[in-house]
């Protein structure tokens, strides 16, 4: 009895020590190796976006380091979580879709548009199954459409319905988050799904689907933007400049190195190569400072949101924009 116990004791002790060692190894990995003399800049990103490319490629961090900034990337699952982190000052910059800042600004968050990227127009829109019998946007009448509240897909839906001469009451809208919508669509619980790449490309490749209308046709372009907290943006114009410059260099590389980019993204997103190829091939990457044209584009989103009572306050995008030149 006693002997059995001591064998057990040694075994458990070994297991616990092993656990602690592994945990220590984990702790080591969470420690940043960046030196302290550099100014710290924390950037929020989402899987597969412009900063994810920069992060995976590695050039961006090196260049920023040379310029005197130590960059830390933080990944977020969606724009809402990122806005929350921005509002609390936990991150300095965040990359998100063009609609998310509007709802946050209307809710009183002090953020500023500092840069705009390329659009996902060709990879954004409403997908339906090829055999669904829906052949034009006017066929959407009476159908069930999945979207995600507070994201670009909400804007997309309004624009698409308006183009078809329909209103939100002519269709059955269901607010689902990405993963729930994906299952619901695949299982045929919803007829159509307003979303963007890579989910759209994936639906087209694996779910026998077609893009009913894309962003260029609906005028819901789904552009990438970089926002910063208003106070940070005011005091760190040079950081913003450096970010735009080096990010755009990565984007030009991305436009000319599709093969490498696809291989990189297949690995980091763990998606089917066909899906990634489709997504990359219909997209042009860029990153630029804000312009009047961009402000007008985002102002329209704000106005549409206000008209449709998605936000309760008029938002003047120009007031929340910084032009770095």
């Amino acid at each position: 009895m006693k002997k059995k116990n001591s064998v057990r004791k040694i075994f458990i002790l070994g297991l616990v020590v092993l656990g602690v060692l592994v945990a220590f190894f984990g702790w080591k990995q969470t420690q940043d190796s960046t030196s302290k003399s550099l100014k710290k800049v924390i950037i929020g990103y989402q899987a597969g976006d412009e900063f994810d490319i920069s992060k995976t490629r590695g050039e961006f961090v090196k260049k920023m380091k040379k310029a005197g900034y130590s960059v830390t990337f933080k990944e977020f699952q969606n724009g809402a979580a990122m806005m929350q982190a921005l509002a609390n000052g936990n991150i300095d910059y965040g990359r998100m879709g063009d609609s998310a800042p509007i709802t946050s600004i209307a809710a009183g968050t002090k953020v500023t548009y500092v840069a705009a990227g390329g659009t996902k127009a060709l990879g954004s829109g409403v997908v339906v199954k090829k055999d669904s019998g829906i052949n034009s946007i006017s066929d959407l009448k009476g159908k069930t459409i999945a979207y995600t509240k507070g994201t670009t897909s909400q804007y997309m839906i309004i624009k698409v319905l308006k183009k078809a001469g329909l209103t939100t009451s002519d269709v059955n809208l269901v607010n689902l988050d990405q993963s729930a919508a994906s299952v619901a669509y695949a299982k045929g619980k919803v007829d159509a799904w307003a979303n963007w790449d890579p989910a759209i490309a994936q639906a087209e490749v694996t779910e026998n689907s077609k893009l009913l209308i894309n962003g260029n046709q609906s005028k819901a372009y789904n552009r990438s933007v970089i926002v910063a907290t208003t106070s940070f943006a005011k005091n760190n114009k040079s950081v913003t400049k450096a970010i735009i410059k080096y990010s755009n260099q990565d984007m030009q590389w991305a436009n000319t190195h599709h093969k490498k980019l696809i291989a990189m993204m297949v690995k980091s997103l763990k998606l089917n190569k066909k899906v990634v190829t489709k997504m990359v091939n219909r997209r042009t990457y860029s990153m630029h400072a804000m312009t009047k044209a961009r402000v007008a584009e985002f102002q329209e989103i704000a106005d549409v949101f206000y008209e449709n009572k998605i936000i309760s306050k008029k938002v003047s995008v120009a007031k929340y924009t910084q032009y770095v030149k």
Partner: peptide, 13 residues
């Protein structure tokens, strides 16, 4: 291994 060890670290601490 990286993710397990980091999770274990967070969990244990």
């Amino acid at each position: 291994p990286k993710n397990i060890s980091i999770s274990l670290y967070r969990a244990l601490v």
